[in-house]
């Protein structure tokens, strides 16, 4: 199946100060809240402890945003959210919904 058919796509990223890690999705159905939280956890698992500790609060904000979105019907593309570590040059956690819809309740993407 070609990339174009996967209309629901996006990524979570942890970036800045030399770090560039991400977890992405591209699928036929909107990304559910549980899959989103699982991808976020997957991204955290890719980081070394100090990179994660620096961004811990920002990961919490990202998770909170995903949960709020889920309570409000999800979000449509294109959306970009950046949770930057205050006082840092560019250390951050990003959410990008680049196509379709994401963060819907688990029973809404079946």
């Amino acid at each position: 199946m070609g990339k174009k058919s996967k209309i629901h796509r996006g990524r979570f990223q942890a970036q800045g100060n030399g770090l560039e890690e991400s977890e992405s999705w591209a699928q036929d159905k909107p990304l559910s809240i549980s899959s989103a939280l699982s991808l976020l956890r997957g991204l955290i698992a890719k980081l070394n402890p100090s990179d994660y500790t620096r961004r811990k609060k920002e990961f919490e904000k990202a998770e909170e945003f995903v949960e709020n979105a889920s309570e409000n019907g999800g979000i449509f593309a294109v959306k970009k959210k950046t949770f930057k570590v205050k006082g840092s040059k560019d250390e951050r956690v990003d959410i990008e919904v680049l196509g379709g819809k994401a963060f819907v309740k688990n029973n809404e993407n079946e």
Binding site: N68, A69, N72, G73, G74, I75, F76, V78, K79, K80, K101, V104
Partner: peptide, 11 residues
């Protein structure tokens, strides 16, 4: 405003 800052329900 190409990145419209709203949820899917319009909030």
């Amino acid at each position: 405003s190409w990145l419209e800052n709203e949820y899917a329900n319009g909030t």
